[in-house]
Amino acid sequence: MVLENCEIETTVFERPDSLTGTTSHYCPGCTHGIANRLIAEVIDEMGMREKTIGVASVGCSVFIYNYLNMDFVQAPHGRAPAMATGIKRVLPDRMVFTYQGDGDLASIGMAEIVHAAARGENISVFFLNNTNYGMTGGQMAPTSMPGQKTTSSQTGRDVETQGFPIRVSEMFSKLDGASYIVRRSLHDPKHIRMAKKAIRMAFETQVRGLGFSMVELLSICPTNWGISPLNSIKWLEEKMIPYYPLGDYKIHPALAEIKL
């Protein structure tokens, strides 16, 4: 049977080596799982699994160290870029990345991430933006949109009293130290493929010593949004993308020649 398969079939897709066999804690449909897998696929394709160190953050992102089959550390809330800085400065030839949500990165950890970017810290950051605090039950995040209902903005985010969301990629595009800043989305296969290329480019930026790279990934949170995964995909497309436009916000000129 196996032999026969070898002869007539090719494997189009299977779980990448860099994913462990652990079942995830993510809710059904949660695109964290897609982001985890894309990072694993890219690391496999680059042959870098044994030379990569991941830094997990706090939030739903916290348990990524159970799912990616490589060395990992787990940071205090918001401090992943600082930990990654410590690791990368001691071990400059390793590939170091952080995996952070929007509460972690854009609220409690804003100082750490901005200064890592401003220093041009040679690390890669994968930033999952699902417009709320997922792990604690869907509270308002710095990325929650005006009018968005969350468990701590129950009648919708009122910008008069709760202020405005932060568009992180746009903000970081103004930092001289940042070399690769893009926003992608995980809502359909086409965009997922684009996200994967961006993850690869972020790592390529690091491997070439070009400095700070970040891929913002628009993600769904069906459980806390209170809608099905399929409706969440629609909501992301219709509500999030207009507010958080996809695109390349900063690309180091030396990256132009890389063709993936």
Partner: peptide, 23 residues
């Protein structure tokens, strides 16, 4: 390695990362 961090919070967490390497 020397980094002047953005805050003491940043500094201690850089130390945290560096300590993980065993150096």
């Amino acid at each position: 390695a020397f980094v002047q961090a953005e805050s003491e919070l940043g500094a201690i967490n850089m130390v945290y990362g560096a300590a993980c390497t065993g150096y």
